[in-house]
Amino acid sequence: MDLTIFLQLIISGLLIGFVFSLIAVGLSLIWGVMDILNFAHGEFLMLAMFTSFFLFAQLGIDPLYSLPIVVIVLYFIGAGTYRFVIKPLLGYTVLIALLATFGLSILIRNLVLFFVGPNYRVINESILAGKTFSIGGLYFSVPQSVAALLCILVTYGIYLLLTKSKFGRALRATSLDKDTAMLMGINTNRIFEITFGIGAACVGVAGGLLVNFYAVFPEVGLNFTVLAFVIVALGGFGNNGGAFLAGILVGLVTTMGGFFIGPEYKYTLVFLLYLVVITIRPKGLFGW
């Protein structure tokens, strides 16, 4: 087999893996702190893509420059979701909140369908879109490379936030024992709201970059949601570093498995891996 193709497979697998990680990290953060699986995560991704697209189409702001705006918008969408959807349900079983996010996902998707329409929207002339560079016969997609770089930065940023800051300590304390954290004077509601906001902001970064190489349409989030759940479970629920590595692993499995075993089996391989891992290690690869 041609060595160039083999190396290209690894590069492509890593690059798409970083994108998967970027989408999954926010989901993992929310789960880790709140024990809530946000089913509307894919729709948050879609909203981020639409925000980026409309800033480009209506105001001419390149997706790269509008990324901070998208992140802020998504932060408020996340925080708002907590305040108006999750918070009123906190006293009840977790299943209620889970179903609420599921309902929210359907609501968001159909509202976008109703107000924006089902059309595919494509950005093809941005700073990043369609750009590639080649080193020694190996091709690198510029938007995916930037996404990879930002994925590393975001994951590292979350790591620093959780381990080195006062807020991070409060967040971890809330995650470990909400009641005791409250007794220690931590405003746990505030912590939850910010966590939801940061989780959504992370997927905002992903959406703001994904718009450079993916069509924008109301159903786009669904394509990634299931993979994001698998990645979070594989990495170990709530373990952000685990989600980061699991995303890369899934990227490599889909690309290498798709090439060597058959493209039609690449998602089967991911789910097979998931089944094997949770059977052997129910807490996921990096869970505790």
Binding site: D2, Q8, S12, N223, T254, P263, E264, K266
Partner: peptide
């Protein structure tokens, strides 16, 4: 011969099969 699953999230493996 490159079959793939409908609703794919990426097609790098497929495209590389074609390239090879």
């Amino acid at each position: 011969e490159v079959p793939y699953e409908y609703k794919a999230t990426d097609v790098n493996a497929e495209a590389l099969k074609v390239k090879a």
